[in-house]
Structure formats: C-alpha cells, structure tokens
Simulated scan of single mutants.
Amino acid sequence: MPRFTTVALAAGAALLVRRAVRRRMGTAPLWPMPALDEPVSGYGRGATVPRRVLVTGRSAPAEGVVELRLEGERLPSWQPGAHIDLVLPSGLVRQYSLCGDPADSGAYTIATRLVEEGQGGRGGSREVHEQLHPGVELEIRGPRNRFPLAPAPSYVFVAGGIGITPVLPMARAAEAAGADWRLVYGGRSRATMPYVAEVERLGGDRVTVAAEDESGRPDLAFLAQLPPETAVYCCGPDGLMAAVAAAMPEGREPRLERFTAAAPAGGSAFEVELRRTGRTVTVPADRSVLAAVREELPGVAYSCRQGFCGSCRQRVLAGDVDHRDELLTDAERKDSMLICVSRSAGGRLVLDL
C-alpha cells in the first residue's frame, strides 16, 4: 500500500482543517491552498501515549454497525484520515478510523462493523459490539494518520461500506473549505451503509450511492478521465480498492486506506540473533519473526499480527530490514521493526532481545 504520511501531506491536512474552521467564521482564503514549508509529523504528538477514555454514547448508524463516542481529558487533536488504537477489555488492540468532528476536542467517535471470524474477522469487532456500552472505561493510543488529506483543487472520494469512516471527515473538510469534490459510496444495501443519509445531505448530487441490491456495483470508469490535479482517496474492501487502482489513468495511483494490512509477500529463511539473551533463531520462509522468536521467548508482546498496532515493535541493532508494516515512520524504521510482519532484506538481523 502506498505510504502518504510524508511531512508535506501531513502539514497540508492540518492546514485544511484550520481553513475549514476559518471558513465557518467567514474568513477562509481562496482555494487551492499555497505550498507549505513548515515540517509537521504525520503521526501527531503523543501518538503512542496510552490514555483513558469513557464510552459515553452508543448508536447504530446502519445494520451491523456500532458507533461509539469516547470521551476523555486533553485528547490530542486530529485531522481527517486519522485512526486510534483501541485496547479492548480482553487486551486485543484494534485500529478504528476517527469519524467525528475534529473540532470536538473532548471526544472521539469511531464506528465498526461486526465481522465474524469465518468472514475474515479476528474477534475484535464482536468484542466491541457485545461488551462496549456507555460506562465502560478503555485505553486508547493515538491518534495516528497514515491516510492524511493533502491540499488539492479537487477530490474524488470512493468508499465501500464501513470504509466511509475515514472518508466522511474528509468530505466534511473539503466542503467546509470550498473545494471541488465528489463521493462514490458503495455497499450491499442502503440499510447496511453507515452515514449514507449524512453524505447525501452534505454533497447533494455530488454523491453517488451505489447499493448493490438496487443498482449493482459502482461505475468507476470516470476515474480514467480525471484531470491530473484531482486527488483520489479510497477506503473499503480489497476488491474495491483494486478496482479503483485499475481505473486510474496510467501512471497515477489513488491514496488507499485498508481495513487490514496487505497480505505479506513471501521471503527467504534467515537468522535472527537475540543479543541480550545470547540466542539465535532461524526464521523459515513461511513463518514470521514473531512466531520464531516467541518459541524462544514466549513473553514477547504482540496483538494485531498485521503491522498496525506496534505491540511487537523491537529495536534493531544490526541488519537490513524489509519493512512491511503500516505504522512506523521512516525515522522510526532506522532502528526498529515490527516483527509480526517485517523480515530481513538479506542476511542476519540482530534484535535487542
């Protein structure tokens, strides 16, 4: 998946929100926004600091979808596209896009669809649906943003089902800033598509709703004719994102946000030296570093096993890493790796374990 958490994009996202607020006050400058020089981290301050929040609201914006309002003190600000790590009562860590209002500094809003384990779920969504009710206290980390909204004269947003959650704040911000935008929103049926009424009110005829039981899958052929300055953002199932990428003009790529990490490519066997414990393990081509290490050190922490949460992050003392995570910044990758998905780029790795 392409990484779009560069300094310039994150800075642009922050400015977009500030301009959206100013527009509400009647002082927004003309679009498009000028280039920015000030470097800003795409991950935000305190992105890994745990914080306590309280579930204060619960609703059902669509069939099989639960929305939660999480209130807390001194919650960090965020920009469209950001997500938080939610530590569930069982200890599982799952990532959910923020879909509320960035101006609401006292609360975060998330929404999740119930996905059964046989359908690709990993137990987190069921725990959210069954156990998280008003009054439950939780730990969160973040927000982080690997899907920031960059300044552009025009946008196309494509969302599938629960993939509307990171896209909705983007559409609100683009509308508030006076940008040219349109949204294609697909799903199995209107009843299963969260926030469908809101996006239709927000965008009017700029919003195309493609419910499969009514009109089939969305027609994406128009993407091939987009002008170069139009930025395309997509979140949804892998099939939808592949279709969007295939429909883009040659040489251009959409900006994607995945529900889960992309399937890791294969690799060769290699050795990992655990420096502090004086042991060396062999990582077969079909196993992860995490699995091999835990055979020697069962207490090594992990959670998502997909390169999202950071629980398995380890310090790298030597060796070249093939980074396959969706979390670490370029600076963090200089001396760290997520051992659940990342591997050796060639030769032995030495970890501070």
Rank of each mutant, 00 (worst) to 15 (best):
residue 313 R to L: 14
residue 196 V to Y: 01
residue 143 P to M: 06
residue 138 L to I: 11
residue 140 I to T: 02
residue 57 G to P: 02
residue 175 E to L: 11
residue 343 R to C: 00
residue 46 G to F: 02
residue 89 P to M: 09
residue 298 P to C: 07
residue 285 A to F: 11
residue 57 G to V: 08
residue 320 D to R: 15
residue 214 E to F: 06
residue 145 N to Q: 14
residue 211 A to P: 05
residue 274 L to H: 07
residue 10 A to S: 14
residue 138 L to T: 11
residue 47 A to W: 12
residue 111 A to P: 04
residue 89 P to V: 09
residue 133 H to G: 10
residue 89 P to F: 05
residue 243 A to Q: 03
residue 34 P to R: 04
residue 338 L to W: 01
residue 79 Q to D: 15
residue 55 V to W: 09
residue 150 A to P: 00
residue 331 A to W: 05
residue 130 E to P: 04
residue 253 E to W: 12
residue 23 R to V: 03
residue 111 A to N: 07
residue 253 E to A: 15
residue 209 V to L: 14
residue 350 V to R: 05
residue 349 L to C: 08
residue 265 A to G: 12
residue 301 A to C: 07
residue 45 R to H: 15
residue 220 L to N: 02
residue 277 T to A: 10
residue 13 A to F: 03
residue 276 R to A: 11
residue 302 Y to H: 13
residue 290 L to V: 07
residue 204 G to F: 08
residue 16 L to Q: 03
residue 25 M to H: 15
residue 346 G to W: 09
residue 23 R to Q: 10
residue 110 I to C: 01
residue 163 G to K: 02
residue 294 R to G: 08
residue 317 L to A: 04
residue 132 L to C: 09
residue 192 T to C: 13
residue 68 L to C: 08
residue 83 H to Y: 01
residue 342 S to E: 11
residue 251 G to V: 04
residue 43 Y to L: 14
residue 105 S to W: 12
residue 96 Y to N: 01
residue 122 R to I: 11
residue 49 V to T: 15
residue 297 L to Q: 14
residue 159 A to M: 08
residue 31 W to C: 01
residue 343 R to G: 02
residue 304 C to R: 04
residue 100 G to Q: 02
residue 316 V to F: 03
residue 273 E to F: 08
residue 60 A to F: 11
residue 20 A to D: 05
residue 98 L to C: 07
residue 290 L to R: 05
residue 325 D to V: 10
residue 249 P to Q: 09
residue 208 T to A: 11
residue 156 V to E: 11
residue 242 A to F: 04
residue 19 R to A: 13
residue 289 V to Q: 06
residue 331 A to V: 14
residue 35 A to W: 10
residue 25 M to T: 08
residue 92 L to Y: 09
residue 91 G to R: 08
residue 40 V to Q: 12
residue 248 M to K: 03
residue 74 R to H: 15
residue 92 L to G: 09
residue 151 P to S: 07
residue 217 R to E: 13
residue 83 H to E: 10
residue 110 I to N: 01
residue 194 P to R: 09
residue 138 L to N: 06
residue 149 L to S: 01
residue 62 A to S: 01
residue 71 E to S: 14
residue 269 A to R: 13
residue 297 L to I: 15
residue 312 C to L: 12
residue 256 L to T: 03
residue 231 A to Q: 07
residue 24 R to L: 13
residue 90 S to I: 05
residue 165 T to G: 02
residue 255 R to H: 13
residue 179 A to F: 00
residue 16 L to A: 10
residue 296 E to P: 06
residue 109 T to G: 07
residue 328 L to A: 05
residue 338 L to H: 03
residue 331 A to F: 12
residue 334 K to A: 12
residue 318 A to V: 07
residue 141 R to D: 01
residue 344 S to Y: 03
residue 241 M to P: 04
residue 73 E to S: 13
